[in-house]
Design a protein around this nucleic acid. Structure first.
Lengths: 194, 194
DNA sequence: TTGCTTTCTTAATGTAGTTTATTTTTTTCG
DNA sequence: CGAAAAAAATAAACTACATTAAGAAAGCAA
């Protein structure tokens, strides 16, 4: 069960067997049922979650009650409210499960401990964070420069698994449009593609 | 002249005098005149730039020739095309100067060397990158959830110096609206505020 | 199987923001 | 300084997307 996370780490850094054990000893497994919250607005995000199976989403609920999805996390992805996790102050995101989900938790305390005891992990999370920054920068620019249909096409190409597993409502919320308009876009695509 | 960058680093990590010297020896000063490119689309971003004085912007030029600003960098900020800088592959951003600007350059090679020779710097850049990620996540959510006038108000409150120093055209491009519409918004704000 | 809830579609109407064009104001620089 | 260029304001026509409403389809518990 911890093979997945070790494999993920091996993609970026090489660590010894005792370091692996140290790392695994700092993790805590958890199961989150579909529709169950992992984190709610106003709480401190004590843990970062590595998804073993299932799917999480993080979102912001605006003053009109509309939900805006920041991120999905399926197998092999990390999920947290980064603002709250790094500062350990109350956050304003919700995180919940779109499917029954298994995760491994790493508390911020344990993460910082890990950085001191094994600096390779500081490198691992630096690289992970660099990649996250790049993908959010790309998302900002795509939202500024592309109309909704283009953004949907790119999303579908980049994350084909998401298109199959997620309801369109969720995808629309991630793209920043209404489900009604996404439906219209998909209709248009069917009759203009070939 | 290198006081500013040492002070910035001291905010996050403590380093010895010889480490400071090592770090400074890896930096290269450069001047960039107003309207001059620091980086063009298709080039590899070899250096990250720490701004000593003046102002840089990074932007994406879409297929219709419109510019979409990703970031401004004034004194005490780092600027790079992160995608290209971290992978050392050709990027798709432009970076140029909005004012005559002085920067200190750190090449990716030197940065990685620094990480090996002084792991505290790996921590410094991890923290910087975490902060960048958080601010881009916040920007994604603000773009999804708020109308243009709210985004402008938040921008003005968060970066008061930018409002004074930058032309409205640039701010509009950062907010994702046309200069004409920003002008309209500002007119509305004048007659509804008090 | 039924009924209930969630998801998806369609369509009419409404609006935040764009486009295009013109004029005024400010900045730049020889 | 004065000319030219850039930036800002205004306004009318237009469009991508939202809102509202209603019904069809699909998933799911009992």
């Amino acid at each position: 069960m911890s093979e997945l996370i070790l494999k993920n780490i091996a993609k970026h850094i090489a660590i010894t067997a005792p370091q692996q054990e140290l790392f695994l000893s700092l993790l805590e497994p958890k199961k989150i049922k579909k529709r169950q919250y992992f984190l709610q607005e106003g709480e401190v995000c004590k843990n970062s979650a590595f998804v073993i199976s299932g799917c999480l989403r993080s979102y912001f609920a605006d003053s009109n009650g509309f939900e805006h999805i920041l991120q999905f996390a399926m197998e092999d992805w990390w999920m947290a409210d980064m603002m709250s996790y790094t500062t350990q102050k109350p956050g304003n995101l919700f995180i919940d499960a779109l499917e029954d989900t298994e995760v491994l938790l790493l508390s911020r305390d344990n993460q910082l401990k890990l950085f001191d005891q094994c600096p390779s992990f500081e490198r691992y999370f630096r690289v992970i964070t660099e990649n996250g920054l790049v993908s959010h920068q790309r998302r900002v620019l795509e939202n500024l420069s592309l109309p909704a249909m283009e953004r949907y096409k790119i999303f579908a190409k980049r994350y084909p698994a998401f298109i199959q597993r997620l309801p369109q409502t969720q995808i629309a919320s991630y793209l920043g449009i209404t489900p009604e308009f996404l439906s219209k876009i998909r209709h248009q695509m069917m009759y203009q593609k070939p």
